[in-house]
Design a protein around this nucleic acid. Sequence first.
DNA 1: AAAAAACATAAGAATCGACTTATCTATTCA
DNA 2: TGAATAGATAAGTCGATTCTTATGTTTTTT
Lengths: 104, 104
Amino acid sequence: MNEADIFKALADPTRRQMLERLSGGERNATELREGLAMSQPAVSQHIAVLRGAGLIEEEKSGRQMRYRIRADGMAPVVDWLTRYRGFWPERVERLKTLLREMDQ
Amino acid sequence: MNEADIFKALADPTRRQMLERLSGGERNATELREGLAMSQPAVSQHIAVLRGAGLIEEEKSGRQMRYRIRADGMAPVVDWLTRYRGFWPERVERLKTLLREMDQ
DNA sequence: AAAAAACATAAGAATCGACTTATCTATTCA
DNA sequence: TGAATAGATAAGTCGATTCTTATGTTTTTT
């Protein structure tokens, strides 16, 4: 729930890939595992880290778990980032472009 | 320079503290070490990680190095974040507001 | 010129993180 | 009911990180 746990969670490429996948909608653990060359427990452990960081939430559905991105999960990171806004001016052009995209 | 290196660099609390300190202005390595219960080489190694991630830059000044936050160092993180903008609407609004302020 | 100061690099120890296999629970299906 | 499926947890291995001490380089001070 704090930025420390979140940055640690995001430091791993597998977990970032899982988030990427979840950004396309809910997935269960088996679906999250697809294409990943690792065991089921490894996936389960990654999921635990993401949940511990508050980045995902889950819902039990029969014998499977449906995972989804937690809406406010990234908030501490955004807050943290804005502390460095004083250093962004040189990148404004690029950020403006992003902003325009976000507005669509 | 990519988000992988940046998230790894940010995963360490000592390095985040150093960035925090640098957000108050330029510091040399000795100043960055103040208050940290670790050896000089440990500090030097953390600095190397931050530089490797593109988060800080340096300037030699006599026998000391002046470090400062690199203006667009955090840009890949912002880019990465905006890919998930659909999942944390309210925080993105704040970010957008900030960017608009900078735009003026 | 010698000593001190600021920092980097090397090598090794200790700790942490990401995996593995084995096993457990809960649910569904035959 | 018994077998299969979905997932979590436990314990151990291994490589990556984060420290340490030792030492090297460059610049400043005396």
